[in-house]
Design a protein around this nucleic acid. Structure first.
Lengths: 243, 243
DNA sequence: ACAAAAGTGTTGTGCGTACACCCATGC
DNA sequence: GCATGGGTGTACGCACAACACTTTTGT
């Protein structure tokens, strides 16, 4: 190894994951109680340290895998935090990632072994360090992404009903949406395939199941078509201002 | 100093600055020829290494100051890059920042002393490492910001004409804009104060000078009002998809 | 007088929004 | 038969886009 930069400082680099899930009609975060000092026993995001032999994205994936056992998860880098005193243990830079997982896929037992729990974003406890700030940014980014990319489907089962999808968007934006406008908007993208099958869990009548057609989406996206999953005017603007 | 994390790896953390300026009707980047190995003599962004005793933002400001001699510059963190082989010298994480400066403020002599040059974004050379990718992201972010925050004014003199402002927006978006629609949109924000004075550099008739009223902007922004400097439909959507 | 850029209003339309009733089923 | 949630269409208003002529002044 060369040593061009040997006189420069080196730093601890942490990777913290904001893990979103959708369950019981609520948007939730997977949080855990810290099992080591400093801040032992406090609520915290899932995190770990970057290793020499992995890229940032690989590191984030590894850390997520350690907690949930899941691979091939939607993840995106969010922002880097580096205030001097952000981690009282030692000077540490943290690069935050957010992830979307299907709660049903997540082995809840495994999560419990790690002391992890799904908590609703409507009622979060205080988090250690600057983790609350990270969550705030992650929510803003999620709102942007959900309007422009079909990532809502990362949080739902492969088959889902339109009322379920609407509930998810409402949970993300914390606002009720008009049923007719929502369905119109979503269906006119032409990306949902209706399945001749009903889910009767939510009502007596039962709601038709749909499947997101990823192939078609990617084909059109490659052609430069900009889909929108906008459910409310000005949401994009607000979220972009918060990030 | 404690040593909670002593068994973890430490890393070099670079800060690279994408510095935008507006001059001669074009959007430009301040680039320099590298004066050390690796990649000596190649075009590069302005960068440096994070020190132990500074935050990320402070480090970025310090590095910008070293090149331009400017303080109190608009800067914003962009993204962090950490592929294993991104810097062939040694494994280095880079946190990219973008900055907006008034070219006229920048002491061009000083820039030259550093081998720096303003190059039009329309005709950029290949940059070292992943710096071209950084520039691409910076442009997308600049497009978003320019539609939602009054940052165009960071690139212009305190007094400017509407044709100048329009030329700036056109340079940012690489598209011509309708004069009447642009003026209407910008003036109806109520954030520009007309000065009873003309700039005759651009034409015989001369164009009235305006000043951005930052005080008024901040007052209304605090009240939660979302200004828009949108000049074209769907620009926000495109830029958000690229970032 | 003419070239060159600054300045100025109106109209159409497409998109987002608001809104109310019938349907299918389990109990 | 009734309560519960699923499913459907239309009318209005606003914000964006398109568009052409007059003004000023230096040469």
């Amino acid at each position: 190894m060369s040593n061009y930069y040997s006189s420069e400082d080196k730093h601890f680099v942490a990777l913290d994951c904001i893990i979103f899930g959708f369950d019981e009609g609520e948007l939730k975060l997977l949080l855990l109680k810290r099992k080591f000092e400093p801040a032992l026993g406090k609520w915290s995001l899932m995190g770990g340290f970057l290793k020499n032999n992995e890229s940032l994205d690989d590191g984030a994936r590894r850390i997520l895998y350690q907690l949930t056992g899941l691979k091939d998860i939607f993840m995106e880098q969010l922002y880097s935090f580096g205030d001097l005193s952000r981690d009282p243990g030692e000077r540490t830079i943290s690069i935050a990632y957010f992830a979307l997982i299907k709660v049903s896929d997540n082995d809840k037992k495994l999560a419990k072994d790690h002391g992890a729990q799904w908590l609703s974003i409507k009622d979060l406890p205080d988090l250690i360090f600057d983790h609350s700030q990270m969550v705030k940014k992650a929510l803003a980014k999620l709102r942007i992404r959900s309007e422009l990319k079909p990532i809502g489907f990362e949080l739902l089962n492969e088959k889902f009903t339109l009322p379920q999808l609407q509930a998810l968007y409402e949970a993300i934006h914390l606002e009720p949406l008009d049923k007719r406008n929502f369905r119109k908007k979503i269906l006119e993208t032409g990306l949902l395939d209706k399945i001749n099958e009903k889910d009767r869990a939510g009502s007596k009548k039962g709601a038709f199941l749909y499947r997101f057609n990823r192939i078609r989406y990617e084909k059109y996206a490659e052609m430069g078509f900009n889909f929108q999953f906008k459910v409310r005017r000005n949401q994009l603007i607000k979220a972009n201002n918060e990030i």
